[in-house]
Design a protein around this nucleic acid. Structure first.
Lengths: 99, 99
DNA sequence: TTAGCATATTCAAATATATGTATGTATAAA
DNA sequence: TTTATACATACATATATTTGAATATGCTAA
């Protein structure tokens, strides 16, 4: 059974995830959540120095693509990384730049 | 020496690379080059069923971001993956989707 | 209830990216 | 040289993404 060169569905899925990560602010968010596993929106946009709406938007993208999860805690919403491997991907990319 | 949360230069570099990969056609190109390490432009755009100019554009993006290298061979230009780890990133992303 | 905080959503403008057509450039062969 | 082939580049258009401002929603406490 020959493996097709082009599996469009998988390609789209992979591209979608990569595109979700491929933004300085979103990498920064992942980076921060890697250091501090649970953060609310206010803390995130404050630390990054961006608008609340902008942070919310980026968080939504990351969540929609399955890279983050959120959980309400009273008035706040805590975001965290869904899969630890994600930060490894960032590391991996960075390591690749050393070649 | 406290490690800063935000290293803008590194973030941009990482995002740039991810963005370069984050496109179905470019993932397809990497995928193909993973199977067949040296391919010329004609072979690539023919297999993908896209315009020559479009392929050239995507190849240039991948090359500019340091993900591919090219080498002239007579009239043809052979492209290949610069760093084998790249295909691992794709695999990694795909594996993450299983969670 | 109402007030106020935390977050999400909507919208419009700015910016970036993708695609096709046309054209330019390099190489090889005749 | 010319001619054909292989690839790159320029440009215009279409499409997608990002951003901030304004507004809406959900929650808690009083």
């Amino acid at each position: 059974m020959k493996k097709s060169v082009l599996d469009v569905v998988k390609l789209e899925a992979a591209a979608g995830k990569l595109r979700a990560i491929a933004h300085p602010m979103r990498i920064a968010i992942i980076d921060m959540l890697n250091d501090e596993p649970k953060m609310n929106v206010t803390k995130i946009y404050t630390k990054l120095g961006i608008e609340q709406a902008s942070a919310s938007h980026h968080l939504n993208i990351l969540k929609t693509k399955g890279l983050l999860v959120s959980k309400r805690d009273g008035k706040k919403i805590l975001y965290s990384i869904k899969d630890a491997a994600l930060s490894e991907i960032i590391d991996c990319i960075n390591r690749c730049s050393d070649y």
